[in-house]
Structure formats: structure tokens, C-alpha cells
């Protein structure tokens, strides 16, 4: 999963930097908006990638869990009046518990059973949305904090600054995950389980517990992420769906098990969307770009396989 960066990865990184530089001069807003929104995608996609790498499950309900996290933060904020940024803290353990319960009730029965998983996680997505509908109705909810609209001006460009929090958060989560997986015993155990669960059992790893902990941790991060999401977006039960879709697409494009790739493709998707939007009249295409990108990547990969 975290194999040493190959030459191709370096090439992609360089290409990335070149594109960023070009955008910085030609269409700086695309760079800023794309980076910010792409980081949000990365934040949601990273846990999906981890769950896939270690449990072998593609979680189609991840956006819906984020929606749950956002509603949790919303409830906390409206009931106690605390700032949503502070609500990030209790949101983590709350979603961790949700993760444990979900795992024990449902996921553990389909680990490494590919066909059933799709039905299960898809069913979870629908169920969570309906549940949220019953509890909170379809009416959009908002919270207002002045810093949500904070902005800065550099030369002729005025842009929003709050969403850089997403960029920072994505960096933190990525680095945190990397350190966890490669430097802690629990993390190394998780990687072992991801590579060979049978072998992991045979070296004394409690594989079942590892699955549960990793799944729950990946859901737990959606608590704080939901709180961050809430600050900038009106939330309603269906708000998570499009993000589930993008998260899964990004993980698929990165190539399963490739965490740094998720960063690249997530930001890439954000930039591509922002780029298309910057052209008057092309805005509508921006939100199906991810679809086009997937098709391209799939064709490219199958072509490569045939060539080999």
C-alpha cells in the first residue's frame, strides 16, 4: 500500500507542480478553489481507501456517514451553542461508536465477500439517508459562524480563506495515517492484515479486532470532517450522496491501495472541476467530470494491460 514511490509517481508529482504553477498565473482562482474543494474530497476519500485496503470493503456509504457526523455536530451546536470547530472533538468518539456498532451489526459479516458488500454498503447508505429524513426531515439546516466567510486579498484576487482548513486537515490526516500505518504496532498490524489476513492470524494478530478498529477509526474521522463540512454547507439527509460517489471514484482512480494516489486524484478532481467551471457556460459539466475521468482511467489501464 505504501510501497516506495516509483519513478512514475515522481513524474506525476512534477506534472502536478507544473500545472499548479500555470494555473497560479493564468487562472489563480481555479488553483485556489480547486485545491480547497479537492482537499475536501481527499478527506472523505482517504478513509474509504484505508477501509478498502485493509478490510477489502468498498464503502459506498461514506458520504452518508459524513452527513451523520455533520448532523451530530449541528445538534451539538444548536443545543449547547458551542462553536462547530469545538464540536469536532466530541464528534470523533461519537462517530467511533457509530463505527463499532455498524461494524458489529453489519460489516463483519461481509468482510472479503465482494458481491454482498456492494449491496450492504449501498443499503446502509439508503438506510442512513432515510433515518436522517425521519429525524431531521429534508429541510436544510445551517449554522453561521463569521469566520466561515473570511477572505483575503492578494493583488487583484480576493478569495476565501476558511476552506484552507480543508487543505490543512487533508495534509494532517494523510500524514497521520502514514505515520500510524508505518510507525505504530497497531498500524503495522493493520497493514499486515490488509496484505494477508490469514498470515496475520498466524503471527498472533487479532484480525477481527483490527478490522473493527480500523473501520471504526475511519468512520470516526468523519465526525470532525462533518463538523468542518457543516461550517460551509447547508446540510440535509441527501447531502452525503454525491460525496460518496466522488470518494469511491477517487479511490478507484488512484488504484486500490494507493494512498498518496488518493491525494493526487482528489486534488486533481477538485482542480478539474474548478477549471471547467471557470469557463462561462461549461459549469454544468463540472459535476460529471469525475465520471469522465473514471472512464478515461479505466480505458487507459485496460489498454496498458493489453499492451503488456
Amino acid at each position: 500500500m505504501l510501497a516506495k514511490l516509483r519513478q512514475r509517481d515522481y513524474q506525476i508529482l512534477i506534472a502536478f507542480i507544473i500545472v499548479a504553477a500555470i494555473l497560479a498565473f493564468w487562472r489563480p482562482h481555479v488553483l485556489i478553489s480547486g485545491l480547497q474543494r479537492g482537499s475536501l474530497y481527499v478527506l472523505i476519500a482517504l478513509p474509504v481507501g484505508i477501509i478498502y485496503g485493509i478490510l477489502g470493503i468498498l464503502n459506498l456509504a461514506h458520504g452518508e456517514f459524513m452527513m451523520l457526523g455533520a448532523f451530530f455536530a449541528f445538534s451539538l451546536v444548536t443545543l449547547t451553542g458551542i462553536d462547530p470547530l469545538i464540536a469536532m472533538l466530541p464528534a470523533f468518539p461519537a462517530m467511533f461508536v457509530v463505527g463499532i456498532v455498524t461494524y458489529r451489526l453489519t460489516i463483519k459479516h461481509v468482510v472479503r465477500a465482494p458481491l454482498n458488500q456492494f449491496l450492504l454498503t449501498f443499503g446502509l447508505a439508503v438506510m442512513l439517508t432515510e433515518m436522517a429524513n425521519l429525524i431531521w426531515t429534508t429541510r436544510p439546516r445551517i449554522v453561521w459562524v463569521p469566520y466561515a466567510a473570511s477572505s483575503a486579498t492578494i493583488g487583484p484576487i480576493t478569495f476565501g480563506t476558511f476552506e484552507f482548513v480543508y487543505v490543512a486537515a487533508a495534509a494532517i490526516v494523510l500524514v497521520g495515517m502514514f505515520l500510524f500505518l508505518t510507525r505504530t504496532r497497531a498500524g503495522l498490524a493493520a497493514m499486515a492484515v490488509g496484505q494477508n489476513p490469514r498470515g496475520a492470524k498466524l503471527v498472533g494478530i487479532d484480525v477481527e479486532r483490527t478490522y473493527m478498529m480500523i473501520f471504526s477509526a475511519c468512520l470516526a474521522v468523519l465526525g470532525p470532517i462533518g463538523a468542518l463540512f457543516l461550517i460551509r454547507h447547508a446540510i440535509f439527509p441527501g447531502v452525503g450522496g454525491p460525496f460518496s460517489l466522488r470518494a469511491v471514484s477517487i479511490v478507484a482512480m488512484a488504484g486500490f491501495g494507493n494512498l498518496p494516489g488518493i491525494l493526487v486524484w482528489g486534488i486533481g478532481l477538485g482542480l478539474a472541476e474548478a477549471f471547467v467551471r471557470s469557463f462561462r457556460g461549461w459549469g454544468g459539466w463540472a459535476d460529471i467530470i469525475f465520471f469522465g475521468m473514471i472512464i478515461l482511467v479505466v480505458f487507459y489501464r485496460s489498454y496498458q494491460r493489453r499492451v503488456r
Partner: peptide, 22 residues
């Protein structure tokens, strides 16, 4: 299984079950 391993029993299965990317 993981508890049995901790009791001091070790197994080398026919398929080896190594961690391929480690």
C-alpha cells in the same frame, strides 16, 4: 487462532502466507 499462536504454537502453512509487500 491468534490466541493459540500466543500460547506458543507456530504454524508454517503450505501456502506460506507471507506478507507479500513487506
Amino acid at each position: 487462532t491468534h490466541r493459540i499462536i500466543r500460547e506458543g504454537v507456530a504454524v508454517v502453512p503450505q501456502e506460506r502466507e507471507l506478507f507479500p509487500f513487506m
